[in-house]
Every structure is written in structure tokens, then in C-alpha cells.
């Protein structure tokens, strides 16, 4: 391998610009699908987990126990093993097991229980008395969920979503290993396997930058929504 100068590294990266851009789009796609699944399926699951726990609106030991157990089960899998075990399901849903869309299937699968737990934990911080006041005023369960629980927890929910997004940015790199593509995959393929240290360093720096931005935006939004 030649001696690497800064100028050479820059030229090298510039020549790879289309691939880097492609990797960014793949990462964005995987995250978008995973987060959408987490919010639309994991969010309600988290609400049910919260409402079914003892002392809550729909306290039910069996429902709570069963859902909690299932969530723990999925969360116990090391992500790479989960991905491999879900290959048949991925093929069924997407028709292929390679590419960012295929990688989004196990990502979603892992994101749903993860976000459900974060939502459950966030909702627990709402004082029971506030929910009780709404009950005393004659609010229906749906009104309590939408107007009280989600509104009172909105800042914490944004923080949870920020945590989820950052975790799944790094999960998406693992997804790259089985042909998912994305920024992390680019770092591994070029940087690690082909000893192109400049590419690896650049991709890691790019990820550092993205994480900083996500956390910054998340913190700002959460602070703005928090009136406590």
C-alpha cells in the first residue's frame, strides 16, 4: 500500500463521492423504514404495555406478562443473529434478502420492541394523579391516551426517539454486512476489508457528525416541548 497523503486521501474520497452519496441514501432509507415501524407499531405496543401494568387503566397481568415476555424475547437476540433468522420472513415480505429494503425488515423487527420499552418507560413518569384527574372528569380511554398521556410525555417521547435513531444508525451498519448497504457498510467494505483507512476514517467521521446532529436536534426539540 502506498504512503497515504492528505491530498491523496481527499482525491480518493472525491472519486468515491457517488458511492458515498448512495450509502447515505441507503442508510436514510433503512432508518426511515425502521423508525416508521417503531413509531406506528412499537408506539402502540408501548402504550398497551403501560396501560396493562398493575394499577393502570387496563391493568391485566396476563396481557402485560405475555407482551413483556415477547418484547424481552425479541430484544434478547444479538442483532446479527436476529437478521439471519429473519431471512425467510424478509424474503417473504420483500422478495429479496439483499439491499437496504431487505435490511429494513430485521431493523424494524428489532426497533419495534426497543421503542415499545422506551415508550412504556417514558409514560411511567407521568404522575398517576394527572391520569386520575382526567378519569374523574369523564375522559374516555382514547382521550386519556391522546390528550393526556402522549401530550404530557411528548418531550420524553422525543428523547426516546432520539436514542432509538442513534442506536439504529449503528445497527444499520451491521445490516450492511449481509448486503444492506449504507454508510457503515461502506466503512467496513472499503475501509476494513480493503485496508482503505482513509475511507474508513471518513465514514466514521461522517457517522460521528450525523449522531451529533441527531442528538442536537432531539435535545432542542425535547426542551422546547417540555413545559414542566
Amino acid at each position: 500500500m502506498e504512503e497515504l497523503t492528505f491530498a491523496a486521501a481527499l482525491a480518493d474520497l472525491a472519486s468515491m463521492a457517488p458511492e458515498i452519496w448512495q450509502a447515505c441514501r441507503e442508510t436514510a432509507l433503512m432508518l426511515a423504514v425502521g423508525l416508521a415501524a417503531a413509531i406506528t407499531l412499537g408506539g402502540p405496543l408501548g402504550i398497551v404495555l403501560y396501560l396493562s401494568q398493575p394499577g393502570q387503566l387496563f391493568a391485566n397481568r396476563w396481557v402485560h406478562g405475555l407482551l413483556g415476555w415477547t418484547v424481552n424475547l425479541v430484544r434478547s437476540f444479538p442483532f446479527i443473529i436476529l437478521m439471519v433468522s429473519l431471512v425467510p420472513l424478509t424474503r417473504l415480505i420483500v422478495g429479496s434478502t439483499i439491499g437496504p429494503v431487505a435490511a429494513a425488515v430485521p431493523l424494524s423487527f428489532a426497533a419495534i420492541p426497543y421503542f415499545a420499552r422506551l415508550v412504556e418507560q417514558t409514560l411511567r413518569e407521568i404522575p398517576r394523579g394527572v391520569v386520575e384527574a382526567a378519569e374523574a372528569m369523564g375522559a374516555s380511554p382514547l382521550q386519556i391516551i391522546v390528550k393526556v398521556l402522549l401530550n404530557e410525555a411528548r418531550s420524553g417521547l422525543i428523547s426516546s426517539l432520539t436514542i432509538l435513531t442513534i442506536s439504529f444508525l449503528s445497527y444499520s451498519a451491521v445490516a450492511g454486512v449481509v448486503g444492506g448497504g449504507g454508510i457503515g457498510d461502506l466503512a467496513i467494505r472499503y475501509g476494513y476489508y480493503r485496508f482503505q483507512t482513509d475511507v474508513m476514517v471518513a465514514m466514521v467521521l461522517l457517522l460521528v457528525l450525523i449522531v451529533q446532529i441527531i442528538q442536537f436536534v432531539g435535545n432542542r426539540l425535547a426542551a422546547r416541548l417540555d413545559k414542566r
Binding site: 404522575p127 394527572v130 386520575e132 384527574a133 393526556v148 401530550n151 404530557e152 414542566r228
Partner: peptide, 8 residues
């Protein structure tokens, strides 16, 4: 304890 909604 009043039980007001903090975000309203």
C-alpha cells in the same frame, strides 16, 4: 396535589 397537566 392539583394534578394539572404540565404541558397545557
Amino acid at each position: 396535589q392539583f394534578n394539572l397537566m404540565a404541558n397545557r
